[in-house]
């Protein structure tokens, strides 16, 4: 920061802070506000049946989702999503560490895993419906079997890439298996694991919605399709908005967790870049 800036900051710190905040707010809200206005205008001018105007959607949103439906449809869906994701994370990391540490096992399973990963997860919905019927278990299974692959394969890559010098050092100092696993292996693989988890999270949302759209009698996906089939257009839009909000919130939450977990890594990177 140069000298004149410092003095001006000293002269009127409150004013400066206020302008900076106002500018940030402007950058944050200008485009969204413009887009909503545009939406409004388009809805009013074109008179398109499918384009509900934002105020109608907002009013309907409160009506539709603040009530029983939130408890019956939305909450269980999100719970399944998180449960499936957590299960896939535990399984993926555990298997990934095992496979990553053993080159032979890796060579044995790699082609099969690459193939299984390449299957687009949504096709597992009809398949698992055959195996497990239409049940909560099936929906969980769909989510787990779809989002385990990025976690598993990224964990394997991360474990493989553990710095050999660090590994040797651990061995020299006689550090036990468990310590080695928690402080060395999982730590150094964590950037990759987090990248895998992030991919898995977006797949998990897709699969939650699809498993409910394809075969179910409750849940978010089912409700939204139901609205669309009965041409309840504003209600359908509220469903889309709710799914969008869930996606957005989960991604924000994930970023917060990631920032915490990878604080050391970002610090190291910043240091090597000389910042």
């Amino acid at each position: 920061m140069s000298a004149p800036e410092v003095t001006s900051a000293r002269r009127a710190p409150a004013l400066r802070l206020l302008t900076a905040a106002a500018l940030r707010l402007w950058y944050l809200l200008a485009l969204p506000a413009a887009l909503i206005l545009l939406w409004w205008w388009a809805g009013a001018v074109s008179g398109m049946y499918y384009l509900s105007s934002p105020d109608v959607i907002a009013a309907t949103f409160a009506e539709v989702w603040f009530g029983e439906r939130f408890l019956v449809d939305a909450l269980p869906s999100v719970a399944r999503l998180l449960g499936g994701f957590a299960l896939a994370a535990v399984l993926g990391v555990a298997l990934g560490v095992g496979l990553g540490l053993s080159p032979r096992l890796r060579a044995l399973t790699e082609p099969v895993l690459e193939f299984l990963r390449a299957i687009p997860p949504p096709v597992l919905v009809p398949l698992l419906m055959l195996l497990a019927g239409v049940s909560t278990g099936m929906k969980l299974l769909v989510i787990v079997s779809g989002c385990i692959w990025p976690i598993l394969l990224n964990t394997i890559e991360g474990v493989r890439a553990v710095d050999p010098v660090l590994a040797d050092t651990c061995r020299c100092y006689g550090i036990g298996r468990r310590r080695r696993l928690t402080t060395l292996i999982l730590r150094s693989a964590s950037p990759q694991i987090m990248a895998g988890l992030r991919q898995a999270l977006s797949i998990a949302i897709i699969l939650m919605v699809i498993s409910e759209m394809f075969a179910s009698s409750s849940g978010l996906g089912f409700t939204i399709v139901q609205f669309q089939r009965s041409f309840a257009i504003p209600e359908m839009w509220t469903g889309i908005v709710l799914l969008g909000l869930i996606g957005f919130l989960l991604s924000v939450l994930f970023q917060l967790v990631e920032k915490r977990v990878l604080a050391w890594y970002n610090g190291v990177r910043a240091a090597t870049r000389g910042e």
């Binding site: 485009l31 499918y50 919605v209 699809i210 359908m236 889309i240 996606g247 957005f248 989960l250």
Partner: peptide
């Protein structure tokens, strides 16, 4: 800078949410 907030909001929206719209 102007588009950052919009992009951050639109990006995580799962595209399956658009299925009913696509059908209509």
């Amino acid at each position: 800078r102007l588009t950052a907030s919009t992009v951050e909001f639109l990006r995580p929206i799962p595209s399956v949410a658009l299925i009913p719209l696509a059908v209509l």
